[in-house]
């Protein structure tokens, strides 16, 4: 059952990452990977909120491990950062790494705090 829930969550999360990335890229022409940054920050916000929520293992498998895990990606983030650096855009590579980590941490903290506040 857990296996099915993880697979189901990921089967929604991964295509949603692809579609969001396309939608974000269609709105700008720069090579900075805004699309991946957006999905990673959004996924971190949702997972941060989930961690503080009183949910059972089934919901955790579906939404945390499956959906948030597949919506966000480290491989794409890592490749983009290296690609920018190797293309000579050192400043953008560093900005991507620092912004992603700080914004992801901030989003996770915000989600966590929001759930805690709502749960009283």
């Amino acid at each position: 059952m857990t296996v099915l829930l993880i697979a189901l969550g990921a089967a929604v999360g991964a295509p949603l990452r692809y579609l969001t990335d396309r939608a974000v890229q269609a709105r700008h022409a720069s090579s900075f990977p805004w699309g991946t940054l957006v999905v990673n920050v959004l996924g971190s916000l949702v997972l941060g909120a989930l961690v503080a929520a009183p949910v059972g293992p089934a919901v955790r498998a579906l939404l945390a491990t499956g959906f948030c895990g597949a919506l966000t990606t480290y491989s794409t983030f890592g490749y983009e950062t290296l690609r920018l650096a190797r293309d000579g855009a050192w400043w953008w590579a560093a900005a991507n790494a620092v912004t992603s980590v700080l914004a992801g941490l901030g989003a996770a903290s915000l989600g966590y705090a929001l759930t805690r506040a709502l749960a009283g």
Binding site: S44, G48, V51, G69, Y74, S75, T76, G78, A108
Partner: peptide, 21 residues
């Protein structure tokens, strides 16, 4: 392989949430 398997295998959300925890 790239978007699906590796994107689903790796995770950014668990990375930052584990650090936050």
């Amino acid at each position: 392989l790239g978007v699906g398997v590796l994107g689903g295998f790796t995770t950014f959300s668990t990375y930052v949430v584990d650090a936050h925890q």
